[in-house]
Measured scan of single mutants.
Amino acid sequence: GLTEEQKQEIREAFDLFDTDGSGTIDAKELKVAMRALGFEPKKEEIKKMISEIDKDGSGTIDFEEFLTMMTA
């Protein structure tokens, strides 16, 4: 499992990506986040990433899903 410290770091990354503070990361926010990390993702790639992570089919990534992605 994760230490509380690791969870906190992932939470901070999540909050950075969640620019509108909605508690979820949408495609637009993910794209901005990827760019910040030096990637140039295409729209299809973003969609694919979200569909792989987005277990509940909401079209957005919540913290639990993000946590799973970061620790996979």
Rank of each mutant, 00 (worst) to 15 (best):
I53E: 02
K43W: 15
I10S: 01
K42M: 12
Q8V: 06
E40K: 12
D20W: 03
A27Y: 13
E29V: 14
D15A: 10
E4C: 13
S58Q: 09
E44F: 06
E52A: 12
S22F: 02
T24P: 01
L2W: 12
K28P: 03
E45D: 11
G21I: 02
D26K: 08
A33K: 02
E5F: 11
I25M: 05
K48Q: 12
V32F: 15
M70R: 01
K43Q: 15
E29T: 13
E5S: 11
L16Y: 10
K48M: 15
D56P: 04
L30I: 08
M70K: 00
T19E: 07
E44A: 06
A27V: 14
E29C: 15
Q6Y: 14
D62R: 15
G23P: 02
M69W: 13
I61K: 00
T68R: 11
I53R: 06
R11Q: 05
D62H: 09
E65M: 14
E65T: 14
E9S: 13
S22C: 08
I53M: 08
E4Y: 08
P41G: 07
G21P: 00
F66W: 07
T3Y: 04
K47A: 11
L67Y: 05
I50W: 07
M49K: 04
E4D: 12
E12P: 02
G23H: 01
D18W: 05
E4F: 08
K31Q: 15
I61W: 04
L37I: 04
L30R: 00
F66G: 00
E4L: 10
I61H: 00
K31S: 14
A13Q: 06
G21K: 08
K47Q: 14
L2R: 03
F17E: 00
A33M: 13
R11E: 01
D54M: 12
L67F: 06
D26Y: 11
R11G: 02
T19G: 04
V32K: 15
Q8H: 11
D54R: 06
S22M: 03
K28H: 11
E12L: 14
E5P: 04
D54F: 12
V32W: 15
M49S: 01
K7P: 01
A13N: 02
G23M: 03
L16H: 10
M69I: 12
V32R: 15
A72D: 07
G21R: 10
G1W: 14
F66C: 01
L37R: 01
G21V: 02
E29F: 13
D18G: 03
M49D: 02
D56C: 14
G59K: 07
A13D: 01
T24C: 10
E4T: 09
E44D: 10
M34V: 03
E45L: 12
G38A: 03
A13C: 14
T60Y: 06
M70G: 01
F14K: 00
E40S: 12
A72T: 05
A36K: 09
G59E: 05
Q6P: 01
M69S: 02
F39C: 13
I10G: 01
K42V: 08
E45G: 05
K31H: 13
G38D: 03
R11W: 07
F17D: 01
F14D: 00
K48Y: 07
I10W: 07
T60D: 04
L2V: 05
S51C: 12
L2G: 03
T60F: 03
S51D: 12
E40T: 11
A13T: 10
K28E: 10
S51L: 13
D62P: 03
F63K: 01
Q8N: 09
K31T: 14
A72G: 12
T3S: 08
Q8G: 04
A27K: 10
K47Y: 05
K43S: 15
F63D: 00
L67M: 05
D15Q: 09
L67P: 00
I53F: 14
T19D: 09
K43G: 14
I53Y: 14
D56Q: 10
I53Q: 04
I25K: 00
E52M: 14
G59V: 03
I25F: 02
D56S: 09
E5I: 10
F63G: 01
M49E: 03
G38R: 03
M70Q: 00
D56V: 09
M69Q: 01
K47P: 04
G1H: 14
D56G: 07
P41I: 14
P41V: 15
M34N: 01
L67G: 00
E64T: 08
S58N: 09
D54A: 12
I61L: 06
M49W: 11
A36D: 06
F66H: 00
M34G: 00
S51G: 11
T60L: 09
K55V: 06
M34H: 00
E44T: 06
I61D: 00
S22I: 01
K47S: 13
E52D: 10
E45S: 08
E52T: 08
K48F: 07
E45K: 04
E4K: 13
A36I: 12
S51I: 05
I50V: 10
E29A: 11
G38T: 02
E4R: 09
L30D: 00
T19Q: 07
L30A: 04
G59L: 07
L30E: 00
Q8Y: 04
A13V: 14
V32D: 15
E5D: 08
E64D: 09
T71I: 11
T60C: 12
E12I: 11
D54T: 14
D20N: 10
K42E: 13
K28N: 12
Q6S: 05
D26R: 08
D26C: 12
G21E: 03
S58W: 06
T24H: 10
E29L: 13
M34E: 06
T19M: 11
T60P: 03
S22D: 06
F14N: 00
Q6A: 06
M34I: 07
V32Q: 14
E40Y: 12
L2P: 06
A72L: 13
K7L: 12
I10C: 09
I53C: 11
E40D: 15
D56H: 11
K28M: 09
D54K: 12
K48I: 09
L37T: 03
K31R: 14
K31M: 15
I50N: 03
F63P: 00
L16I: 08
E12K: 13
S22L: 03
S51A: 14
E40W: 13
T24E: 06
D20H: 05
L37S: 02
L16C: 13
D15G: 05
E40R: 10
F63E: 00
T24G: 04
D54S: 12
E9Q: 15
Q6T: 05
F14Q: 00
E12R: 15
K7A: 07
E4N: 12
F63N: 01
D56E: 09
E4P: 14
E12W: 14
F39Y: 10
T60M: 09
G38W: 02
S22W: 03
S58D: 06
E65Y: 12
T71C: 12
L16T: 08
E9L: 14
V32S: 15
T3V: 03
S22T: 08
T71E: 14
S58Y: 07
G57C: 13
S51P: 01
E52V: 14
G23I: 01
K31E: 15
M70I: 11
D20M: 09
G23R: 02
I50P: 02
D54G: 13
T19Y: 14
E9F: 12
I25W: 04
I61V: 05
I25Q: 00
T68S: 11
M69L: 12
E52I: 11
E65K: 14
A27I: 15
D18P: 01
A27W: 15
G59W: 12
I25Y: 01
M34Q: 01
S22Q: 02
R11K: 08
T71H: 06
S58L: 08
M49N: 04
G23C: 09
D62A: 14
L2M: 07
A13Y: 10
K47G: 09
E65F: 11
M69C: 11
